[in-house]
């Protein structure tokens, strides 16, 4: 498509227009997916609590999210008089934008990626580390007690779990030998016993897959690590002073981030757009189907955890991050690199 536009409009302008269209082709379906995934989250949560969940708007309540969206769209955005007006309104925009930019490097299928860059994984890490700014700014700009507590909690929590996420990514990168997400997926082809696709099925990397899944929950502030919006302690956390679309942008950004983490789980450990088994008939199903199936499966796991696990206390959260995950993932980097040194690079065991 880029080549076609460049043929019509010239090199620079053609690239610009094509990229703009590709961005919209990712962002707009993503917004639709977020709306449906909020509905799915509520339905799963309700089913596990033996309730019906949303079932009034549209068939099976499918249009609930759109009704909610219309409602908040028609509401008035209230800015508290004591708030720092500019930053107060900027914070939800930052959260929402940062949630979208990570998708630029996610491969949805063979050659179906917006930006196939060499440092794709670092780009994702950078994008996810920026996510905390929306929360901190919202908490500070609200000029209110509970949002500020929430901002402080968010800052410490997200920085802590990024450390172990970084080490997990390093063990994956060591094995794949590249930071490019498409190449990482290719490296997982027939990875275990010559026919199973996915680093997660490798016994050496499986513990890291578990650590990554739990860290992803903490990084996106999902239950059981949703201390930034713990309603029993700090009302609604950083969202307390927000209303209407500003509030909805937080909501959309949060679920966008959750989906991004699910996609990253699928890409890093479970083969991305590859079918689970390296068997020719399975490749007849398009890669994008496998990718979406894996994303949805991990979203179900996220909802499942939210419905069943009670919220952590803050000191327990910090203990898990710094005293358990950090040493464990660091040790695993040593084990993985040692194993690779023995088998792949020095040839002692190969």
């Amino acid at each position: 498509m880029t080549a076609w536009f460049q043929g019509v409009l010239g090199y620079g302008l053609g690239w610009f227009v094509a990229t703009l269209i590709l961005i919209l082709m990712i962002a707009l379906p993503l917004m639709l997916a977020v709306a449906m995934i909020i509905y799915a989250d509520r339905k799963i949560w309700a089913a596990m609590a033996l309730r019906r969940g949303p079932n009034v708007v549209g068939p099976f309540g499918l249009l609930q999210s759109f009704a909610d969206g219309l409602k908040v769209f028609l509401q008035e955005t209230i800015v508290p008089t004591a708030a720092n007006r500019g930053l107060f309104l900027l914070a939800p925009v930052i959260t929402f934008t940062i949630a979208l930019i990570g998708w630029a490097v996610i491969p949805f299928g063979p050659d179906m990626v917006l930006a196939d860059i060499n440092v794709g994984l670092l780009y994702i890490l950078a994008a996810s580390s920026l996510g905390v700014y929306g929360v901190i700014l919202a908490g500070w700009a609200s000029n209110s007690k509970y949002p500020f507590y929430s901002a402080i909690r968010a800052a410490a929590q997200m920085v802590s779990y990024e450390v172990s996420i970084g080490f997990v990514l390093i063990s994956v990168v060591l094995w794949a030998g590249t930071f490019n997400l498409s190449d990482i997926i290719e490296a997982q082809r027939a990875h275990v016993f010559g026919f199973i696709n996915g680093f997660g099925f490798n016994p050496l990397l499986f513990p890291m897959a578990v650590v990554f899944l739990i860290s992803a929950l903490a990084e996106t502030a999902r239950a059981p690590f949703d201390l930034t919006e713990a309603e029993s302690e700090i009302v609604a956390g950083y969202q307390t002073e927000y209303s209407s679309m500003a509030f909805a942008l937080f909501w959309l950004g949060e679920y966008g981030n959750v989906l991004l983490m699910c996609a990253l789980n699928a890409v890093l450990f479970w083969g991305g757009w590859l079918p689970p088994i390296d068997w020719a008939p399975l490749y007849a199903i398009p890669g994008i189907f496998w990718m979406f199936a894996k994303i949805l499966f991990f979203f179900f796991v996220f909802s499942w955890v939210k419905a069943t696990v009670p919220r952590y206390r803050y000191d327990q959260l910090m203990r898990l991050g710094w005293k358990i995950f950090l040493p464990l993932s660091l040790l695993w980097v040593f084990i993985v690199s040692g194993w690779l040194m023995l088998t792949r690079y020095s040839g002692v065991l190969s």
Binding site: S129, L130, F148, I152, E162
Partner: peptide
């Protein structure tokens, strides 16, 4: 460039902001 964003923007500046806010 990515390291600058991850280390300085994502971690150092967050702690900066953290301290200055308080």
């Amino acid at each position: 460039a990515m390291l600058l964003v991850i280390v300085y923007v994502g971690a150092v500046a967050v702690l900066f902001l953290f301290v200055v806010m308080m």
